[in-house]
Simulated assay, not measured.
Amino acid sequence: MDKAVAILMSTFNGEKYLSSQIDSIIKQTYKNWHLYIRDDGSSDGTRDIIQQYSNKYSNITFFNKNNMENKGVVKSFMELLEKTDADYYMFSDQDDVWLPKKVELSINKIQNDNVDTPLCVFSELKVVDANLNPIRLMNNKNIWFDFIHFMFGNCVTGCTILINRSLKEKLQINKTNLSNIYMHDWWIALYASAFGKLLYIKHPTLLYRQHSSNVEGSQRNTPLHLIKRSLNIKNEEQGMLSIFNMDYEFNRMFGKKLSGINKNYIDSYTNLPKNSSFLYNLNLIKKYPPKRAHLKGDILFSYLLLFHSRSLLSGNK
């Protein structure tokens, strides 16, 4: 119980479920935590709820009470991470429900490892509907730990993770172009897979609430979602470009520390904006095939590289 945990929550128009989520954090069996809530410019009653809790509890802070600014989810969470201090850090959505031992289980998973090693714990989660009725497990064992897979896809859901101070410091947030970061959890997992360690808790630690505003997040690898994706090429092109932008930023920040096959992969793919052509991309796929969550994802990604690569020309160079 002596290790301090900073729980970082970014909110935006979340009044409907926010109290339920905060209450589930208050009920955690592990007690040495501090909840920092940054609101990203809500126009509903979210800020009033945050203020009520921060007035009542000394370990809940309205992080930007006097500085309201809409930055988007990545910059909002990364600002919280950069400007808070603790032994461990966790990320919280505004509409889930944490199971009582979530923090305790995450601490137990990480505590026997070397504190100087960048560490990231993540877990399974249970997808539920708006009324918390169970739907299914999120990952269903579809997880990975290697850097190359994280170059193309993410299996680490931000609201499940805990990282140590070493990982936070090595991210060098103040030197990072956050506009190139697809999602903060993906960025963290990418670094941990390259230079640290990822630890997985195979049973759910929270209820991942699905409602009209966020239902897409839980469907990322379902058959129906894959069909929708394959029919929406423009969105897939934009997603591919966003992935390459993030890989570019990672290579810019940390590429000199990489070696071997990891270095070859990221150098080859981050050179795409200046080299992209049918033949170059075909040779790239043959030598360094994309590695996604499943074969269908690999095929779709390869297809986009070969026949819809024009969007790459607008990427980082």
Rank of each mutant, 00 (worst) to 15 (best):
F91A: 09
F91P: 01
S92A: 15
S92V: 10
S92G: 07
D93P: 08
Q94M: 14
D95Q: 12
D95E: 15
D96A: 10
D96W: 03
V97G: 01
V97Y: 10
V97L: 12
W98V: 01
W98F: 12
L99G: 02
P100H: 00
P100D: 00
P100I: 01
P100F: 01
P100A: 01
P100L: 03
K101D: 15
K101M: 11
K101T: 14
K102M: 13
K102I: 09
K102F: 08
K102C: 14
E104M: 12
E104R: 08
L105Q: 10
L105R: 13
S106C: 13
S106G: 09
I107Y: 06
I107T: 05
I107P: 03
I107N: 03
K109S: 15
K109Q: 12
K109F: 05
I110P: 02
N112S: 14
N114S: 09
N114H: 06
N114A: 09
V115M: 10
V115W: 01
V115F: 03
V115A: 10
D116R: 04
D116K: 08
D116L: 07
D116P: 05
T117Y: 03
T117S: 05
T117L: 11
T117G: 04
P118M: 11
L119I: 13
L119T: 06
C120W: 00
